[in-house]
Design a protein around this nucleic acid. Structure first.
Lengths: 135, 135
DNA sequence: TGTTGGCAGTCTCGAAAAGAGACCAGCACT
DNA sequence: AGTGCTGGTCTCTTTTCGAGACTGCCAACA
């Protein structure tokens, strides 16, 4: 199961980086990707890429996220260094979330993926419809 | 230093496309992204981008995926038009999975994201360690 | 004075999804 | 006759997710 995958160069290296590790800690790509590809993470990064937002603003912006998931996802994004959390000691203390430099640099490739998604949405929907029709 | 990297109109339109929709069906980007960002989808797409694989090969290639999840993820990828499934009537019938043109075109931006992940893995791990140390 | 409402969350509980592993039919090799 | 390989499905358990109630603080309103 080891000798058959030795054909390409750059792609193979990436591929090996994703699969070679015996576990998660040894695989940088899966480690990082799994932090990004949560259900709400890309959405929040896209939102914060536009401008910083407060907790309640984000909640109103993404109506179908629960507070629990918003708190948790922001916490994870903060932990991984994508998001900066700042508390302002106003009368009711307000909390502002903004993208760090790391977050902004991650936003670039993410944005490409999102652009692809926009362009190819119709193709995907068609494929889906054709597939469902055959079943 | 404020979000000036992002003040292009195209990006704002994408952002609006992600957040404006009242529900999922109206938001093309979320619809497509949610099909890509599963736990195993990117990994399998990366693997199949190298060359077509059979079911058992994929299973051995990604040792920590369960058959159940492999079947299900491949099925979803096929439904969305990224993956082609072909059955060969050999003695024990073998099934080969390969990327479609749509899958290959999606692989391009995905690959950028993966490359970013590879490059910035250390930064993310450092941020994570620093964050955990403070708690 | 009591009430209401906004802020940023936390807590709990039921539902949905993921993971582990048994099981299936058919065929080849020993 | 037993073992192993093919590509899966079925069931059971654990993990995660989602909805909504609840907290503490303060300000405005009646």
């Amino acid at each position: 199961m080891d000798g058959k995958i030795v054909n390409l160069k750059s792609k193979l290296e990436i591929y090996k980086a994703m699969t070679a590790g015996a576990n998660f800690a040894d695989c940088p790509v899966r480690d990082v990707i799994n932090g990004i590809n949560g259900k709400w993470s890309p959405l929040l990064v896209m939102a914060l890429a536009e401008k910083p937002y407060r907790f309640g603003e984000l909640r109103r912006l993404v109506p179908d996220i629960s507070q629990r998931m918003l708190t948790q996802t922001l916490h994870e994004l903060q932990r991984d260094g994508y998001v900066h959390r700042e508390v302002f000691p106003t009368k009711p203390p307000s909390v502002e979330y903004s993208l760090t430099d790391l977050g902004r640099s991650m936003f670039v490739p993410l944005c490409h993926l999102v652009q692809w998604a926009e362009l190819n949405h119709d193709a995907v929907r068609e494929a889906r419809a054709a597939f469902d029709a055959r079943m």
